[in-house]
Design a protein around this nucleic acid. Structure first.
Lengths: 222, 222
DNA sequence: CTCAATTTGTAACACTTGTTACATTTCTTT
DNA sequence: AAAGAAATGTAACAAGTGTTACAAATTGAG
């Protein structure tokens, strides 16, 4: 079990022996949930760090019309709901439900603070996790605030082209997946890609995207 | 100066005397910038915490077409750019420019980590700041992902109504400001408000909004 | 290789929002 | 109280996206 815990982002770089010592001197709980058990409710105060040791959980949002929307799956070994812990408004925005039988290490926020003070590595790991999550959300926010599909596509292609060669991007997702990521419909995305082809901005050989006119592409953003 | 520092969120609840002690035993810099001086460039690695003691700074984004867009102003006493510090990808996404002559306390991330370990209050404050920022951005993201203006307005009204009485909301902003916050144009927002009036969902007496049909309002949110 | 499933291309039409323009109302200042 | 500024109401039209439907192409399993 300790080796599983050492694979979670927050205990990364800490040996199983150390984890054993840490848990001996830190107040904590280990709980097991059956499949489909509700681990925490939307609206609950979140005062504990959850470390998923075994199994898989999902987050479910409930919209104003009581419709359930699956947000994301988390698979062991990982942590979840960690970013709300120290916020003033620390109520969960989603239900946490076990997908499969799951074992979870639970550490209260006060105990976690004590742990942070005695173990620099865990503190660094935690700061790293929530900072990365913040950067991710901020980038997504910036992206979503682009008005048109063309602008989003252009921004996406430019970002990908930074990490690739020959101005050629490998199109790793299906159009349906990309459309979903963009928050638009699949036919609309396809239409936009076609327009960019027609305008001579890109070529689409097979599963690749080749950028022909980088300047035109940049002008599409904003 | 120490009393100014004690008013920043990260040194909140710490006396001037304590701050004096802390700074004596913590490696740091205090720099002064003239108005319009560039404090940090977009793309720079961000390895320092910036504590604004005097003056005011602004963040400026530069889009793909080299156009400058003002993001936000920060006024002393406060901190800024703190959420990127411990992220893997810790490059600034904006330029930081002094609006007025400004005095800034700069603490390197390594020194800050040491400080976190010796001072629980500062650690708590920092976790609180970035967590709150994360919650804010997450909510904004959720909000932006609502498709129509009507859905955004409905969500906004419902959130506000939770904090008010009689189903009556005080409309604190002008339509132009609200439209900007929503990322839509002012005439479009006005049209949507009119539609909601015509549909008998709300009444708009003066600067107030009164919710008439709460159920219809909820159904507008996707 | 073949057939079924998946993915992609495309079109017509409806809906939502942006754009522009101007009238009307409300607020501010003198 | 009057004049000017700011905010709001409204309309016509353009642009962009969603919806629905179906055909064509590609992929995967047997």
């Amino acid at each position: 079990m300790y080796s599983k815990i050492s694979e979670t982002p927050i205990f990364k770089g800490i040996s199983s022996d150390e984890i054993s010592n840490i848990l001996n001197s830190t107040h904590h709980q280990i709980k097991t949930y059956e499949a489909e058990a509700i681990i925490a409710f939307s609206g609950d105060e979140c005062n504990n760090l959850f470390v998923l040791i075994e199994g898989s959980i999902r987050g479910e949002a409930i919209d104003y019309n009581e419709k359930i929307i699956k947000i994301e799956d988390v698979f062991a070994p990982d942590t979840f709901a960690e970013a709300f812990l120290f916020a003033d408004q620390n109520n969960l925005l989603i239900n946490i439900v076990a997908n499969t039988k799951s074992k979870i290490l639970i550490i209260h926020k006060e105990d976690l603070l004590v742990l942070f003070q005695s173990n620099k590595k865990i503190l660094e790991n935690y700061l790293n996790i929530i900072s990365n999550r913040f950067v991710l959300v901020t980038k997504k926010l910036k992206f979503l605030s682009l008005r048109t599909i063309k602008a989003k596509l252009a921004s996406h292609f430019i970002e990908l082209s930074k990490k690739s060669k020959n101005n050629t991007i490998f199109f790793g997702k299906t159009q349906a997946e990309l459309a979903d990521y963009f928050g638009v419909t699949r036919p609309s995305l396809a239409r936009t890609i076609k327009e960019m082809k027609d305008e001579g901005i890109i070529e689409v050989p097979g599963k690749m995207i080749r950028i022909i006119d980088y300047n035109k592409l940049k002008k599409l953003i904003e």
